[in-house]
Simulated assay, not measured.
Amino acid sequence: MDVLLVSLASLFAGFVDSIVGGGGLIMLPALFAVFPTTHPATLFGVNKSASIWGTAAATVQYAQRVQMPWRALLPAVAVCFAGAMAGAWTVTQISPEFLRRALPLILLLVLGYTLMRKDLGRHHTPHMTARGERLAACTLGLCIGFYDGFFGPGTGSFFVFLFVRWLGYDFLHASASAKLLNTASNLAALILFTWKGHVWWHYALPLAVANVAGSLLGTRLALKHGSGFVRIAFIVVVSALILKTSFDAWIK
């Protein structure tokens, strides 16, 4: 029964995450509810062992239908991996508690800006030179990758928002690019959790299969309905993240 419950959560998490990020909002609470006495690091490791396959599958699907800026993204992948490793190491030295309280406010600003700018992310209009785009993508990879390793909630949504706001991508191209970098940060975290012995591999396979199935469904919907659909999903997911992180930081 436990495997079935968390597999269903992994399916839905893969679906949401493939569109605009935020799969951890579904997967981690489910894991904590089903395994309440388990060390948190182990549950984080289980989550990464499933989510990395969903993000990788979504990346492949997007790459087949969306023109990916590979010259900018490939260097950013390496930088993102290094940033996530550095963030994961840093969290072993200092507590991320200050981010727990600040995160709802940051997300609220992101949501407010998106709602005010009705045209934000509706059109794909990259405005940087090739070198500038590569530098910007690497900067995002380093900073958000570090954040993912150090703390994590909302990583995919931050990637999407910044690709839209800073690089001029529409929501569909931003989501596709975000999946590639998020796969790199997930891989870095999974390697660290594996090294520390915090992965239940007997759960990894069924959760990964469910996550990939949800991811393929979500990606197809995003590709079919385009940037307008992804924008709406982004607003819904960020709103849910605000409620969840506010509860964790100020009420729980």
Score class of each variant (00 low, 15 high):
Ser10Asp: 06
Phe15Gln: 02
Asp17Glu: 14
Ser18Tyr: 12
Ile26Trp: 02
Ile26Arg: 07
Leu28Ser: 02
Leu31Val: 03
Ala33Lys: 10
Val34Lys: 01
Thr38Cys: 05
Leu43Met: 10
Phe44Trp: 11
Gly45Ala: 14
Ala50Asn: 02
Trp53Asp: 04
Trp53Met: 11
Gln61Tyr: 11
Ala63Cys: 12
Ala63Trp: 09
Ala63Gly: 06
Gln64Tyr: 15
Gln67Cys: 09
Gln67Pro: 00
Pro69Asp: 03
Pro69Met: 08
Val77Lys: 01
Gly83Ile: 04
Ala84Glu: 04
Met85Cys: 13
Ala86Trp: 10
Trp89Val: 15
Thr90His: 02
Pro104Val: 00
Gly112Ser: 08
Leu120Lys: 08
Leu120His: 08
Arg122Thr: 14
His123Arg: 13
Pro126Cys: 09
Thr129Ala: 04
Ala130Gly: 12
Arg131Ala: 10
Gly132Tyr: 06
Leu135Gly: 04
Leu142Ser: 12
Leu142Phe: 15
Ile144His: 12
Ile144Cys: 09
Asp148Asn: 02
Gly154Cys: 01
Gly154Arg: 03
Phe163Trp: 11
Leu167Thr: 05
Leu167Tyr: 04
Tyr169Trp: 03
His173Thr: 14
Ala178Lys: 03
Lys179Gln: 03
Leu181Thr: 05
Trp200Lys: 14
Trp200Ala: 13
Leu207Phe: 03
Ala210Gln: 00
Gly226Glu: 00
Gly228Thr: 08
Phe234Glu: 07
Leu243Ser: 06
Leu243Gln: 00
Thr245Ile: 01
